[in-house]
């Protein structure tokens, strides 16, 4: 009984949060088009999200590209199909792995730092101070962050695509001594525009979700430093789960 009670409460809590989150997303989307538009702040956030995330995303992409090449090479070689490795690396990276892994890495970095930042502002009444000055925190704090997330993640993923494919190239050519042209030909031949674009669209959605979750958890922070800690970890969990769930539906949609 006790267990069921708790399960029930948990479900209610999740549903309530989902509702609040959806409402806040709507409010934030509307706020994007309100004046004044804060260009300076936008650039600050673009830089922060882009520069902060670049190293982790690149390292992730490089090793992912190499490991797919490695695994498929060992498999494909068994039936003399190692020439197809390029096709597999290209398609799987651009469609799926680059956006999802970059999304998860950036979620860990950026969702948490946004949640901590806005959460701290919440508990030290800075958010209240904004409200009192007639400045909408959703517009002032959220809009630059969600725009930056939505713009920056596709860029990061674009670079990750290239780096990941190069990772595979490096492994095949320099380690296994395969023909360099073969690999790249297969990449070009089998990876079409739709694959790349669908990956970038996913990335844009993930970028929005990451920034939005950070803002959402930050704004809901209660109760001092401990609350900020909870908001931070909570934001990473929520953003990561949303990325994995949305990834499925977006893949289905853009199949």
């Amino acid at each position: 009984m006790n267990f069921l009670d708790r399960l029930g409460n948990w479900v209610l809590e999740v549903v309530a949060q989902a509702g609040d989150f959806a409402i806040l997303c709507g409010t934030a989307l509307k706020a994007i088009f309100k004046r004044p538009f804060d260009i300076r702040n936008l650039f600050k956030q673009l830089e922060r999200i882009g520069v902060d995330s670049m190293p982790v995303v690149l390292i992730t992409a490089l090793f992912t590209g190499m490991v797919i090449a490695l695994q498929t090479y060992s498999g494909f070689k068994r039936f003399q199909a190692q020439s197809m490795v390029g096709a597999l690396v290209g398609v799987s990276l651009t469609r799926e792995l680059a956006p999802v892994l970059a999304g998860l890495m950036v979620a860990g970095r950026i969702a948490s730092s946004i949640a901590a930042e806005i959460g701290t502002m919440r508990v030290t009444e800075q958010v209240d101070a904004l409200e009192v000055m007639g400045v909408d925190p959703v517009q002032y704090l959220f809009v630059p962050r969600i725009l930056s997330g939505t713009i920056m993640l596709p860029l990061l993923v674009g670079v990750a695509d290239v780096v990941g494919i190069y990772g595979g190239f490096f492994l095949l050519v320099n380690v296994f001594g395969e023909n360099p042209d073969m690999y790249l030909n297969k990449v070009y031949q089998y990876t079409n525009v739709h694959d790349v674009v669908s990956g970038l669209v996913k990335a844009a959605v993930f970028g929005f979700v990451i920034a939005m979750v950070g803002c959402f958890k930050g704004l809901r922070t209660e109760g001092g430093a401990e609350g900020v800690g909870n908001a931070t970890t909570g934001s990473v969990v929520m953003a990561s789960l949303l990325i994995l769930i949305l990834d499925f539906f977006l893949s289905k949609l853009m199949f």
């Binding site: 502002m121 030290t124 009444e125 800075q126 209240d128 101070a129 409200e131 009192v132 000055m133 007639g134």
Partner: peptide, 23 residues
């Protein structure tokens, strides 16, 4: 609503107990 409050608050100034400066 929040929007209505934003309009009214232009006439107000408030200082907070813990200052609430933007850090």
């Amino acid at each position: 609503t929040r929007q209505e409050w934003f309009k009214i608050r232009r006439r107000f100034g408030m200082s907070f107990q813990e200052a609430a400066l933007f850090d």
